[in-house]
Each structure stands twice: as structure tokens, then as C-alpha cells.
Design a protein around this nucleic acid. Structure first.
Length: 707
DNA sequence: TTTAGGG
DNA sequence: CCCTAAA
């Protein structure tokens, strides 16, 4: 499913024959040649690569994707991946969709990453992988990326390690945990460093595991230009924070050190975070669901790959995580307060994450920004946003954003049926490249609507409201070309910050946009993200983590990251699942057409009670159907009356027996005249119409069908 | 919270 | 189905 949607959104159609069509924004394609020049691209690539790796790994375990160069698309429940490679070369693209689970993990990682300061060790392996990828494609960028990744990873690991130390559970499992986290870490790293700093940082981080080192490097690079921070959900800040809603948002920008530190801290948080929370059950559940978790495993893989390969099961560690997280959480939390500004989250493992932080990644250049993506799916890479911290924070509450994925503009690709998978991959790659090359912008979607006014504060725009967080999304839009739609990059950032007021998120100039997927989102963009809503299980874990901001639908999505080509892992895209969107949106309830049985029950109840007493009708005939509210029944009656009046040919959906429709008309007519609706009599007794009377008896029983 | 209607 | 004004 996911896959499908993803495709739809993103690549779905391939219209162009082999050649990829440049998406809207054209500009450059990435291919090997492209140089990293565009910082944005780089960032993306990095992110993508990271995500891709993560995904791959995860997938590999599951599906297979190990090989890098190959094209393949696999769809899993949780994750769907597509990889595309250019035929020859260099740029493979991967797209993966990960489910929420992954996100969590990623989130976690990211946090850890952010924190950097702490540590990253275990992740190394991952890094290496990443590195490879990135490197290949673009030397500079890649390298950096990889470096970043590594560092991140390490950090992540470290962090875990620490936790473990603290907690029993954790330690042993670190590996597992790490996996998940590490991924996140990767992502984060990438975001943070990758974009900008890569090299130096890499060097430091990579080589060693030293957490400390990482931080250092990290910060430096980051500071310099872009800081991209990906939020991860990890954190989840404690509930409190969530409740407040206010987490801070960080902006990448140049804060540099401070930011970093924050970041780092934040990262920690994520771990600790969320103990238990309830948060949106649904959302959480969704997140929690297996899918997400799946991701976690991926992480493992990842690690293994680097390290040995051994895979460890993360899952079992979840608990640990939680515990772990909590502990840390507290710690972090405290720290956080200090930093407030931004919080990053991450995923914890998967649980839901909620908060997000964003950090921007971006390039210094400005124009293009890079977008970072995160996927959480597997790993979650959070995207980014960043920001600065802006101004205020202190008191205000900060708004945390957990961006799991960005919605990307639609990419249309046309390929002949006879085309090879490789060519398809390549085509996709090109499309992605083109997109990136053109510069990307970040658009902010709130409840499906784009927020164009970048000068408004988060609170003004309503972004700071929890409810809206769910429906908040970020989109990546082609920069120049599309400019119009989305908000300007810069602006969006600002928006993000909302609550606090003035904060602004990032500063991307115009370029890149990231979108999280929000609810519906605009049509244009693809969604990279997915939402996860639907995760069911895992409440516990998830919940705890999530709570914070959570929910936000954002997190659900997965980010996509385009990576430059590489052989293998070039890019991974993580699609967001449609579900996510929902969440994001307002959570429009899923459509549940009334069955004939339900219609019958409704008709009978109305015959007996009359119209206008929907609550009683609900109680009588649908008491057990919690998804049918009295408003729903009223609406259904309205439609039934309408349906009964139109010709059968005009009716749609499951046909309702004419007999019922006749009764509907009779009852409608009867009660209309009797106005009795509200009167007291319950039974008018009168609908003589067809068989009404007899049926009544039945009513009581109610046929409702549970759905 | 329910109703009643428009969207 | 959603959203809301009214009650």
C-alpha cells in the first residue's frame, strides 16, 4: 500500500520514456557530474543517502536490497523501497519507504546525533556505509555526509551506551537499540553535518568513536553554515513539554555552538523522553505499530553491516529504550530547559515521536537549501528544519516539530514498459536530481493549507497548537520554479517556530523546501512522507515516547532523501504513507459507508422515534457502533432521503434496497408532517408505511453491525 | 451536548 | 464526513 501511494505521490507516473522528465524544477540533474555544488543537493543527497542506507539495511534484512546497484522495488508492509540506479552508474537512487517504526528509530538517532556531544560509537558501521555512498557520488558532499553520519551514529551509540550503563536493559542491547537509534543518528548527522561540514567532522567522527570528538566537529561545521538538524523524534520530551506544546524549535542556522549543544542535549532527550504517555493513542499506536518497529531492525542491520553484520534484535530492547529514555529524558529534559530553544526529538525507537526539531541543514549558499529528509521509517531521518532559535524561547513554549518526512513535489516519470528497471531507477534519479538541483523550498502546511505568510509567528498561525501539529507538514518544493505555492523557505521556518513567537526556524532562503507531509497536502508535492497513523500496537512504548509533541503527524512521514548517485545506496526515499497524512490532517475519520444492515436499523429507528431525535436513535440502534455518532446518523438519514428521491441510476455506492428507501421516504414524510420529531412520543406508531411496524421490534435489537 | 444544516 | 450556529 504504502508503496503505491508513494508512487502516486512521488513518482508514480512515469510518463517519459526513459528519460526522466525533469520535474518541475529542472535544473540540474544530478548525475555524477553534478557537483555537489549545490549545497542543497548535497544535503539532500546526504540525507538521502543516509536514509537510503538505513532503509536498505533495514530492508535488506527484510527484503533485500542489499545490493546497491540494483534496482528494485520492494514493498513491504512497513516499508517500501525503491531503488533506482542509474544504469551505469553513479547514481543510484533508492527510495524507501519506511514505516513509522523506522521513524522512531531514526528519531532517536537523530536526537542522539544532535546531541552529539555525547557520543556516538556504535554507529560507525553505518557511517561507513553511508560514507561510501555519499562519497561516491559526490565527493565533497558525500564525504561530509558520511562523516556526519558516522559521527552521528557514534553519538547515537554512545548515548545508548550510556543509557545502557545506567539501565540494565539497555546496555546489552545497545546494539539493537543502537541500530534503531543509530539510524536516526545517521540521519541526524547527516543533516547536521552532512550538509555542511562533512569532511572535517567526518574525519573526526568517523575514525573514532569518540563521541566527544564528534561533537566538536559537529559543531564547528554546523555552525558554520547550515546546521541542519533533524529532529528526531526522539525526544519526546516529556509529556510536560508536550503538553505545553511548546518545545522549541531550533533553527539551524548559525547558531552554531549553541545550537549544537542544544541539539545534543535534545538528542538526549529523546532518549529519555517519553516515558509513557498517552498522547494520541491512535497516532501513537500507529507509530508503534510494527511497521515502525521494523525499522528498528534495520538499524541493526545497519550496524552489522558496518561492524560485523551481526544483527541484533532491537526489539526486545524497546523496553530498555523506554526506560532508558525516560531516564535520559529526565536528564535531558533538564538540560533542555537550559536550552530550551530547540528541542529535538527523535525517535525513539519508534515510538511515536513527537517532537521534532528541526534543524536545518542547509547549505550555506542559500539558495538552495538542502533539505534534509528524514525518514523515519527506518531511521528516521528527520528533516529538517532548522532554525534558529530564535528569539525567544525562553519562556515561551517552544514548539517541537518532529518531521519525519517531507512531502516532495510530484515527480512524473515516464518510462516505456520495455524499459529496464535500471533505466527506471535512473529516470527516477534524474527526476530527483533535477528537483534538487533546482533548489528546493520548504513549504509549511497546516491542516492541508499552505502557510504562506512567513512573517507570522507560529502561534499566530496556529502552528503551535497541538492540534495543529498533527496537521502540520512540510513540503519540499522546487525552488525557483515553483516558488509560488509554498511558503518561502525562510518564511516557513519562521512559521514553524510559532509559538514562541518570533522564532524563526530556519533560514533557508528560498530554496529548498521541505514539507512534511501533512495532511493532505497539496497535490503538487509528493509526499515523501508518510504518515503513519495507523500504527496500532506499541502503544506503550510509543506512547511514552511520543507524547511529547508528538503526534504530529509530521513525524509519521518519512523523509525522502535523494542521494546522489552512488552505486549503492544512493538515495533512499522514504515515502510517507498516506495514513500519515490523515493524521496530519485533522484526522478526518475514515470513511465507513453504511451497510444495508445499518441502514435498515437506522430506518427502523427513525420510523419509531422520528427524525430529530438522533441521540435516541443512536442509542437505540447504534449504541454499540461507536463510530456512528448521532451526527452521522442524521447525516445518513439526510443522504438516504436524498438517495430515495433520485433515480437508481444516480445512486452510488452500495445499493440500498428499494424497500428501505421506500420506508425512508415514508418515514420522512410522516415525521415531516408530524413534526413530532421531538415530541415525546417515541413511537408515533405510525408509520404505516410498509412494514414499518413490524420492524420496529427489531429495532430494539438493532442490527447494527459493528465495523 | 444535541440539533439542524450547510459545506 | 466535517464544521458550526443555535439551542
Amino acid at each position: 500500500m504504502v508503496f503505491k501511494k508513494r508512487l502516486d505521490y512521488g513518482f508514480n507516473t512515469f510518463n517519459v520514456p526513459d528519460v526522466p522528465r525533469a520535474p518541475r524544477s529542472i535544473r540540474r540533474r544530478c548525475r555524477s557530474k553534478r557537483v555537489v555544488e549545490d549545497s542543497q543537493i548535497c544535503a539532500f543527497e546526504l540525507l538521502a543517502s543516509l536514509a537510503g542506507k538505513l532503509l536498505q539495511e533495514s530492508e535488506s534484512s527484510a527484503s533485500s536490497n542489499a545490493s546497491e546497484g540494483h534496482d528494485r522495488v520492494s514493498i513491504g508492509k512497513d516499508v517500501v523501497k525503491q531503488e533506482i540506479q542509474y544504469d551505469d552508474d553513479e547514481k543510484p537512487l533508492k527510495v524507501e519507504c519506511v514505516e513509522q517504526g523506522s521513524c522512531d528509530a531514526s528519531a532517536v538517532a537523530s536526537e542522539s546525533t544532535n546531541e552529539n556531544s555525547d557520543d556516538l560509537k556504535e554507529f560507525k558501521p553505518a557511517d561507513s556505509v553511508l560514507d561510501r555512498t555519499s562519497i561516491k557520488t559526490r565527493p565533497a558532499c558525500l564525504e561530509q555526509m558520511s562523516g556526519d553520519l558516522k559521527s552521528v551514529i557514534r553519538k547515537g551509540n554512545v548515548a545508548y551506551g550510556n543509557f545502557h550503563d545506567d539501565g540494565d536493559l539497555c546496555s546489552p542491547d545497545l546494539g539493537e537499540l543502537c541500530d534503531g537509534k543509530s539510524e536516526n543518528g545517521f540521519k541526524l548527522e547527516r543533516d547536521a553535518k552532512g550538509l555542511e561540514t562533512g569532511k572535517s567532522s567526518i574525519a573526526n567522527t568517523c575514525p573514532s568513536k569518540d563521541p566527544v570528538a564528534l561533537p566538536m566537529t559537529y559543531s564547528a561545521p554546523v555552525n558554520s553554515k547550515r546546521d541542519v538538524k533533524l529532529p528526531s523524534r526522539g525526544d519526546r520530551i516529556p509529556n510536560a513539554s508536550f503538553s505545553r506544546h511548546r518545545n522549541d524549535i531550533k533553527l539551524g542556522s548559525r547558531d552554531d555552538d549553541e545550537n549544537f549543544s542544544r541539539f545534543n542535549r535534545l538528542s538526549y532527550r529523546f532518549k529519555a523522553s517519553r516515558p509513557p504517555t498517552r498522547i494520541g493513542d491512535r497516532r501513537i499506536r500507529k507509530l508503534l505499530t510494527s511497521k515502525y518497529w521494523k525499522v528498528a531492525p534495520k538499524l541493526k542491520d545497519f550496524e552489522h553491516s558496518k561492524a560485523d553484520g551481526g544483527i541484533r534484535p532491537l526489539y526486545r530492547k524497546r523496553k530498555s529504550y523506554y526506560n532508558y529514555d525516560r531516564c535520559q529524558y529526565e536528564t535531558h529534559y533538564k538540560r533542555r530547559k537550559f536550552f530550551d530553544r530547540s528541542s529535538i526529538v527523535n525517535s525513539d525507537g519508534g515510538i511515536s515521536s513527537e517532537s521534532v526539531c528541526n534543524s536545518p541543514e542547509k547549505v550555506a549558499d542559500g539558495d538552495k537549501g538542502s533539505s534534509a529528509a528524514m525518514s523515519h521509517g527506518a531511521c528516521g531521518i528527520p528533516p529538517l528544519l532548522t532554525g534558529n532559535k530564535a528569539s525567544h524561547q525562553s519562556k515561551d513554549s517552544h514548539v517541537k516539530f518532529s518531521i519525519k518526512s517531507f512531502r516532495i513535489p510530484e515527480l512524473y516519470i515516464e518510462v516505456p514498459e520495455s524499459a529496464t528497471v535500471g533505466s527506471l531507477k535512473r529516470t527516477v534519479m534524474e527526476a530527483v536530481t533535477a528537483l534538487l538541483g533546482g533548489g528546493i523550498r520548504v513549504g509549511v502546511l497546516l491542516q492541508g493549507k499552505k502557510v504562506r505568510d512567513g512573517s507570522r509567528t507560529l502561534s499566530q498561525t496556529g502552528i503551535s497548537c497541538e492540534e495543529n501539529l498533527d496537521s502540520l507538514g512540510f513540503t519540499l518544493e522546487p525552488g525557483p520554479a515553483k516558488a509560488p505555492p509554498p511558503v518561502c523557505s525562510e518564511e516557513p521556518h519562521l512559521l514553524m517556530s510559532c509559538e514562541k513567537g518570533p522564532q524563526q526556524l530556519t533560514s533557508l532562503p528560498a530554496t529548498p523546501v521541505v514539507d512534511t507531509a501533512i495532511p493532505d497536502a497539496t497535490p503538487d508535492p509528493l509526499l515523501l512522507t508518510d504518515t503513519a497513523h495507523p500504527v496500532d500496537s506499541n502503544h506503550e512504548t510509543v506512547s511514552s515516547q511520543t507524547d511529547v509533541l508528538t503526534d504530529q503527524s509530521l513525524s509519521e512521514s518519512r523523509a525522502i532523501v535523494p542521494v546522489p548517485a552512488m552505486n549503492v545506496e544512493a538515495l533512499a526515499v522514504i515515502p510517507a504513507s498516506p495514513k500519515v497524512r490523515k493524521t496530519e490532517l485533522a484526522q478526518r475519520r475514515t470513511r465507513r459507508p453504511f451497510s444495508v444492515l445499518e441502514v435498515e436499523a437506522l430506518v427502523q429507528a427513525v420510523e419509531e422515534l422520528g427524525t430529530g431525535r438522533w441521540r435516541d436513535i443512536k442509542l437505540r440502534a447504534f449504541e454499540n457502533a461507536d463510530h456512528r455518532t448521532y451526527v452521522d446518523l442524521k447525516d445518513k438519514w439526510k443522504t438516504l432521503v436524498h438517495t430515495a428521491k433520485i433515480s437508481p441510476q444516480q445512486r452510488r455506492g452500495e445499493p440500498v434496497p428499494q424497500e428501505l428507501l421506500d420506508r425512508v421516504l415514508a418515514a420522512h414524510a410522516y415525521w415531516s408532517q408530524h413534526q413530532a420529531k421531538q415530541q415525546g412520543k417515541q413511537q408515533p406508531g405510525t408509520l404505516r408505511i410498509t412494514d414499518t411496524e413490524p420492524d420496529r421490534n427489531r429495532l430494539a435489537t438493532v442490527p447494527t453491525v459493528p465495523m
